[in-house]
């Protein structure tokens, strides 16, 4: 009888070793720490981090602060708990320990995402990811929220091609794996006000690559019957600084997307659309 995940009987172990890359704050030096937990079947990385938090002691018995990490739904729809596990960026809730041990029975290695500033330990600041959605105006510009009757009729085919794009949970796996998406970490200057720091940070983000997720969202909203009215603005954003021309077609994004969103298809469509858009603008000058 098939049960949930077969406990790995062949490498039956008594303890799980977890190596965590820790960092006490932005700009601080990262360090490694080893934790050891008694083996239980059917754990995931979240339950391991919960056990580490409750125990707050390293493998050599030293009392330490619990590891900091972000999580939310624990069922891979919110995107919060993304981190790098055994070298691969993914959600820690769906990272099942028995599977990880099948691949590497010696230890589980947890690291923060690589393209975002570390706030503490495994928790990173993904503001840039959400800011990119503003850059491409990823919304439907309705007149207002009063009752104006239903939206346009849409074919089942259109729904079936848009729905996968609308499942993007802004987790950041795609940008973590993208060789063209470079980390931007802006340190606060002495005496800088909240507003001034925020402004300087966003300006730096504006200059960086928007990322595959934002390009795909631009396509989603360009497909919407009302969202389409901002198509020009979105294509302007994608043909400007940090736009689609940065993409080097490595195709890592689509390989790591936990929702299997056809990101490279979106990028190809956006590429064609921006080219046409630029030529059209050139003729209209």
């Amino acid at each position: 009888m098939t049960t949930a995940i077969e406990p790995t009987k062949k490498h039956r172990i008594d303890f799980i070793k977890i190596r965590v890359r820790r960092q006490d704050g932005p700009g601080k030096k990262p360090y490694w720490e080893l934790h050891k937990l008694p083996y239980e079947p059917e754990l995931n990385v979240i339950s391991i981090l919960q056990m580490i938090a409750a125990q707050a002691t390293t493998s050599d018995g030293k009392k330490v602060a619990p590891v900091t990490w972000d999580c939310g739904c624990l069922e891979e729809v919110c995107g919060a708990c993304t981190m790098v596990i055994n070298g691969k960026v993914r959600q820690s809730c769906s990272a099942l320990v028995d599977r990880l041990l099948e691949d590497n029975p010696d230890e589980i290695v947890l690291e923060p995402m690589r393209k975002f500033p570390v706030l503490r330990d495994l928790m990173v600041d993904r503001q840039r990811l959400f800011h990119a959605l503003k850059r491409v105006e990823a919304w439907v510009p309705v007149d207002g929220y009063y009752d104006m009757g239903p939206g346009d009729k849409q074919s089942r085919e259109a729904q079936e091609s848009n729905y996968p794009l609308s499942q993007c949970m802004s987790c950041g796996c795609c940008v973590d794996a993208c060789p063209q998406y470079l980390k931007i970490e802006v340190a606060r200057l002495d005496g800088e006000s909240d507003e001034a720091f925020e402004k300087r940070k966003l300006a730096e983000y504006e200059a960086g690559f928007v990322g595959p997720h934002a390009i795909s969202q631009a396509i989603l909203f360009n497909n919407n019957p009302t969202g389409k009215v901002l198509e020009g603005e979105r294509l302007d954003a994608l043909s400007g600084e940090g736009g689609i021309q940065i993409c080097g077609n490595a195709q890592n994004c689509v390989a790591v997307c936990p929702k299997e969103i056809p990101l490279t298809t979106s990028i190809a469509r956006a590429g064609r659309a921006t080219t046409l858009h630029v030529i059209k603008q050139w003729f209209e000058k």
Partner: peptide, 22 residues
């Protein structure tokens, strides 16, 4: 019904019938 209409206008990818209705 008004809430559903609004969400439809806001771009929610509701499943459709063969004819294109919700």
């Amino acid at each position: 019904p008004k809430v559903i209409d609004l969400m439809d206008r806001l771009g929610v990818t509701f499943n459709r019938t063969g004819e294109g209705f919700l």
